[in-house]
Computed example of a mutant assay.
Amino acid sequence: MTARTPGRRPGGPDTRGEILKAARESFASKGFATTSLRAVAREAGVDAALVHHYFASKDELFIESMALPIDPRQVAARILDGPTDQLGRRVITVFLAVWESPDGQQRMKALLRSVVSSDDVARTMREGIARLILQPVGQALGVPDAELRVALVASQLMGLAMIRYIVELEPIAATDVADLIDRMAPAIQHYLTA
Rank of each mutant, 00 (worst) to 15 (best):
Thr15Gly: 05
Arg38Pro: 00
Arg113Gln: 12
Val51Asn: 00
Pro10Trp: 02
Leu112Arg: 10
Ala110Pro: 01
Gly12Glu: 08
Gln139Phe: 06
Val137Phe: 01
Gly7Ile: 08
Pro83Ser: 10
Thr35Pro: 11
Lys21Arg: 14
Asp103Pro: 04
Pro6Phe: 12
Glu25Arg: 09
Lys21Pro: 01
Phe95Pro: 00
Ser36Met: 02
Asp47Glu: 13
Asp119Glu: 15
Lys30Glu: 15
Leu80Lys: 02
Val94Ile: 14
Leu50Tyr: 00
Pro72Gly: 02
Thr15Glu: 03
Val116Ile: 10
Gly17His: 13
Arg131Thr: 12
Val98Pro: 01
Leu134Glu: 06
Leu112Asp: 06
Val115Met: 08
Arg38Tyr: 03
Leu61Pro: 03
Gly88Gln: 00
Phe27Leu: 14
Asp14Arg: 13
Ala33Val: 15
Arg123Asp: 11
Glu64Thr: 07
Arg73Gln: 09
Ser117Ala: 14
His53Gln: 12
Asp103Arg: 12
Glu43Cys: 02
Val46Asn: 03
Leu111Tyr: 10
Leu134Phe: 13
Arg126Asp: 11
Ala41Pro: 05
Ala77Ser: 14
Gly31Trp: 13
Val115Asn: 06
Gly17Lys: 07
Ala22Ile: 05
Ile92Asn: 07
Asp103Met: 11
Arg107Trp: 03
Pro136Gly: 07
Arg107Asn: 11
Glu64Gly: 06
Asp103Asn: 09
Ala97Met: 14
His53Arg: 14
His53Tyr: 15
Ile19Leu: 05
Glu64Cys: 07
Gln139Trp: 12
